[in-house]
Nucleic acid binder design. Sequence first.
DNA 1: CTAACATTGTTATTTTTGTAACAACCAAAC
DNA 2: GTTTGGTTGTTACAAAAATAACAATGTTAG
Lengths: 214, 214
Amino acid sequence: MAISLRSLPDKTVERLSQYRRNLLVCLSKGKQHIFSHEIASIHNITPVQVRRDLMLIGYTGTLRKGYDVKELIELIGTILDSRDGLKVCVVGVGNLGRSLISYFNGRRSKLTIVAGFDTNPEKVDKVYAGVHCYHFDKLTEVIQREGVTIAIITVPAEQSPHVAEHLVIAGVKGILNYTPKSVNVPPQVYLEEYDMITSLEKVSYFVKKNSGLE
Amino acid sequence: MAISLRSLPDKTVERLSQYRRNLLVCLSKGKQHIFSHEIASIHNITPVQVRRDLMLIGYTGTLRKGYDVKELIELIGTILDSRDGLKVCVVGVGNLGRSLISYFNGRRSKLTIVAGFDTNPEKVDKVYAGVHCYHFDKLTEVIQREGVTIAIITVPAEQSPHVAEHLVIAGVKGILNYTPKSVNVPPQVYLEEYDMITSLEKVSYFVKKNSGLE
DNA sequence: CTAACATTGTTATTTTTGTAACAACCAAAC
DNA sequence: GTTTGGTTGTTACAAAAATAACAATGTTAG
């Protein structure tokens, strides 16, 4: 299916993930068809943008009826999901790490968190929301044994470059870094970084600006 | 200072926040001057982008010496920070909420988390990392008494629209929504939303694509 | 049967963001 | 001195993303 492999815009991928989650809610409420303006209003965006995204994945709705909810969910699945799913690990089982683990738990998804890592002896070999926490020394071993391809970094900032290096050596293909310190990976590893402090400072900047504060 | 109020590009604001944090690290190590390519390599971006950002805030370095670390930190401060700081609250004191609270605690910053809110009776009136947790019923009262202008939403997804509505009524000027359900706010309230599941699915998509998996 | 309407799919335009190119500068080397 | 080299500041260009415009369609109302 050529179209699903042609690279989609970043932002479209993000929205597709969100569409799907809300479509599942609609489906569970018995809704079978949905209009672009309905999807749009759920996500506070414009109907045009929804239609454009769906155009990019080659989905065609029916006039006057809108889109078939179930079909659309399945199509997004073929685009976003890997056939046999992917395995994920979390490095750093602090508050944030645990919140991610419990967040994903119970979600039917092609992504599963299969391991946590930490150096704190009190956490090692405990189980958090169904996920076993290993000592950081076992990183490579566990990643290769379980076939983990994606890692989430939630360790203290200073350690993230070191952690990322090990993850790359262990062979992960994608990294999601939640520490404020940017990490360096080779081009074949996909990297996404998010920093909560930056987001808060951004909100603060625009609040200041909108209020006309000096 | 007109230039600091002219609206900066979103992405520039984000990077300025990050520059500052790393500049503080440099300063604490005794580094007094820094080149654009040094800043760039810390953040894994290009030197041009750094220079462009600094141009936009009107900062001029010295040739051959680069930028004065201390001056630059202070300038970014005058742009990002409000004079007397802003107060922040966290609605939803679960794992994520607590991780945010402890994350910010101890940081010297113009932003301070002054209150948490939850409905769970076991959490109400407890103190987490120095932050008092109030019952959700006290939301408006506490926000107005303390002069809170920014709120972070970390409740279960279904509740976020309801929470946002109350926050707007209570008078906050900026909201950072960490739930996967988008909320609706009037235009004078600045809204930033981030959804961890979406980020993970995005990484997954690009891992799949890069690996040439079907 | 025809006209009006709501909705889709697509192309065109604008805005935002990032990248590249390059002149200006000045310290140091020779 | 003058040339070389590395750095900044700025302008010009390119890419990505969002928005607008509009033709096409088929259902419903009259």
